[in-house]
C-alpha cells in the first residue's frame, strides 16, 4: 500500500516563520510522531538564507538587502547562501525518520534520493537536470537548485530551493561571492553559473505548474501519496517559540 505523507502546500510567510516551521515539524516528528511531511513554500518578503556555518557579513550585502527590503536569516542547516525571491522561487522541505524504509542511512545517498525527487519533478516540466554531489542540482551545467540537510535524534530535515523565475541579477546584488570561489571557475560572470526554470525552458512558467510537477516528483520518487494537511497545535506552539530564535540578532549574527 502506498504510504501517505502530509503536504503543507505553498504557505507564504516571512523568513523567521518559514525556518521556524521547518524546525518545528522536525522537532514534533521526534517527540510526537507527527506525520512525515513535505512542504512547498514561498518567502514574503524575499529573503537571503545563509548556511549555519556561514559568516553573515562575508556572504550577504546587508546594505543592498536593506535597500531592496530583503530579509536575512540563518538556517539550522549547513551549506551556502540562497536568495529566496518571492516572485521567482519555491522552497521545499522534507521531514522523515532516518530509519524510514525509503531513506538511505548514508547521508550522501539520502541527498541523492531526495534531490532525485526534484530532478524527476523538473523532468515533467521538460528540464533535464542532474544531482551534483554534495548538494546541488544542475541543468545545462548551471545550478538550478541547492539543498541542505540536517539530522537530529533520528529525524531528517532537508530543505532546498528551486529557482523558477528568480531575479538572478538581484540575487548577486544581495549575495557576496568570494573572489577565491570564483577564481577556479572558467565561466566569467557568476550570473552565468545559475539558471532558473524560465531561462532554461525559454517560456513563462507559473508557480502552479512548478508546484504540481514537484508534487509528482516527490510522489513518484518516494512512492508516496501526498495529502494536504495543516500544522498540528503542538507544531504551531513550537513555531511561536522558534520564531523568536530565528528573529534574534544573536542567532542571525552569530558568525
Amino acid at each position: 500500500m502506498t504510504e501517505t505523507w502530509r503536504l503543507i502546500d505553498m504557505r507564504i510567510e516571512d523568513a523567521p516563520t518559514q525556518m521556524a516551521i521547518d524546525e518545528a515539524i522536525a522537532m514534533a516528528r521526534i517527540k510526537e510522531g507527527t506525520p512525515n511531511t513535505i512542504r512547498l513554500y514561498r518567502w514574503n518578503p524575499s529573503a537571503v538564507s545563509i548556511g549555519y556555518f556561514q559568516s553573515i557579513t562575508k556572504e550577504v550585502n546587508l546594505d543592498a538587502c536593506k535597500e531592496y527590503g530583503v530579509d536575512v536569516i540563518r538556517r539550522i542547516t549547513g551549506g551556502g547562501a540562497v536568495y529566496h525571491d518571492y516572485n521567482g522561487e519555491i522552497t521545499y522541505s522534507l521531514v522523515a525518520p532516518t530509519n524510514h524504509p525509503k531513506m538511505p542511512r548514508d547521508i550522501l545517498a539520502s541527498y541523492e534520493l531526495i534531490c532525485g525527487a526534484i530532478v524527476n519533478g523538473l523532468k515533467e516540466l521538460g528540464v533535464e537536470s542532474e544531482f551534483k554531489p554534495v548538494n546541488d542540482i544542475v541543468a545545462g551545467g548551471k545550478k538550478i537548485s541547492g539543498n541542505a540537510q540536517t539530522r537530529r535524534h533520528g529525524v531528517i530535515l532537508q530543505h532546498g530551493t528551486i529557482l523558477v523565475d528568480s531575479d538572478i541579477r538581484r540575487m548577486f546584488q544581495v549575495l557576496r561571492v568570494s573572489d577565491v570561489k570564483i577564481s577556479d571557475k572558467l565561466i566569467q560572470a557568476v550570473e552565468e553559473r545559475v539558471t532558473n526554470l524560465r531561462r532554461y525552458l525559454e517560456r513563462d512558467i507559473s508557480f502552479d505548474e512548478s508546484r504540481e510537477a514537484l508534487i509528482h516528483g516527490f510522489e513518484n520518487t518516494l512512492e508516496i501519496k501526498l495529502e494536504a494537511g495543516e500544522l498540528t497545535s503542538g507544531e504551531k506552539k513550537l513555531v511561536n517559540e522558534l520564531h523568536e530564535k530565528y528573529s534574534s540578532k544573536e542567532w542571525v549574527f552569530q558568525r
Binding site: 548556511g51 549555519y52 556555518f53 556561514q54 559568516s55 562575508k58 539550522i76 542547516t77 549547513g78 551549506g79 551556502g80 547562501a81 547521508i107 554534495v134 548538494n135 541542505a148 540537510q149 540536517t150 539530522r151 537530529r152 558568525r255
Partner: peptide
C-alpha cells in the same frame, strides 16, 4: 572562528 558553506553533523560541534 571558522565559517563556510560546508556541512557538519551535528552542527553545534563547530
Amino acid at each position: 572562528k571558522i565559517s563556510g558553506d560546508f556541512f557538519m553533523h551535528p552542527e553545534a560541534a563547530i
